[in-house]
């Protein structure tokens, strides 16, 4: 049993997490992992492996069926509002309100966390991150998918949470915008010591960004470690090969 004092040392601490939808649809199956403060941790796995469900539970959007989840020592079930005050969450395909301008959207989202000079500062920072020029004053309905993604990302980065949860941060983006998003993630992690917990299909991206990686398959964590360690142990050239070999191991 990990004591509460030691739980606070982890940005995320998950123990025997189970999530069952309905009667028998198991999304997450006895998942245990931890994320250290300041690191970038990546969950990889195919569709339906339980990545998004895990992130939603940490973000207090879903309740676990059983198990324990702590964010900097705070129980996500017992004290969700405190958890939300130190995290921020960028869902997969996060959008924005069509009839608001980009600036209004940034101001709205950040005003739920900050007020006064701190709000003004955060809004300016988000506008700077988004880097949309005059488009920031146009309605979101005129934005491309990439612009919306950057806009949503800018609000969560500018809020400078202790833990930032990103679900498929570059999903559907072109190469140029994907690189920009990755650079922003790395920059805020290094400059502001923001712990990042992300999920991705893109294993090369995860390899590039993350210090440690967890591979989820059918709701279970089938491998975990640094990308280099995982490649070395499985004699693989990249994480994709690691994934294929680990899945084959389970199958056999």
């Amino acid at each position: 049993m990990v004591m509460r004092d030691s739980l606070e040392r982890y940005a995320v601490y998950i123990k025997d997490l189970v999530k069952i939808f309905g009667r028998d649809v198991v999304a997450v199956d006895r998942l245990s992992l931890y994320v250290e403060p300041g690191e970038i941790y990546g969950l990889i796995g195919p569709n339906g492996s339980g990545k998004t469900t895990t992130l939603r539970i940490i973000s207090t959007l879903l309740r676990p069926t059983s198990g324990e989840v702590y964010v900097f020592g705070i129980n996500v079930i017992k004290d969700p509002i405190r958890v939300r005050s130190i995290i921020n969450y960028l869902p997969e395909e996060a959008g924005a309100y069509r009839d608001l301008t980009g600036l209004d959207f940034i101001r709205f989202m950040l005003s739920l966390r900050f007020s006064g000079p701190r709000l003004i500062q955060a809004v300016e920072e988000a506008v700077s991150i988004a880097d949309l020029g005059n488009d920031i004053k146009r309605p979101v309905r005129t934005y491309s998918k990439g612009m919306k993604r950057i806009l949503a990302l800018s609000t969560v980065l500018a809020s400078k949470p202790r833990l930032l949860i990103l679900d498929e941060p570059t999903s559907g983006l072109d190469v140029e915008k994907s690189i920009r998003v990755r650079d922003l993630i790395l920059r805020y992690n290094r400059e502001h010591q923001i712990t990042i917990f992300l999920s991705s299909h893109n294993m090369l991206e995860v390899e590039y960004l993350c210090r440690r990686v967890g591979i989820l398959y059918k709701g279970r964590l089938i491998a975990e470690g640094s990308p280099e360690d995982l490649k070395r142990i499985t004699l693989s050239r990249n994480l994709e090969e690691v994934f294929v070999k680990k899945v084959a191991e389970i199958g056999s």
């Binding site: 969450y89 869902p91 959008g95 924005a96 309100y97 959207f105 989202m109 739920l112 966390r113």
Partner: peptide, 14 residues
């Protein structure tokens, strides 16, 4: 539909 709901739910509000 506008896909901002989950972001909103993750904010520190009741």
């Amino acid at each position: 539909i506008e896909k901002a709901f989950e972001m909103l739910l993750a904010q520190p509000i009741h």
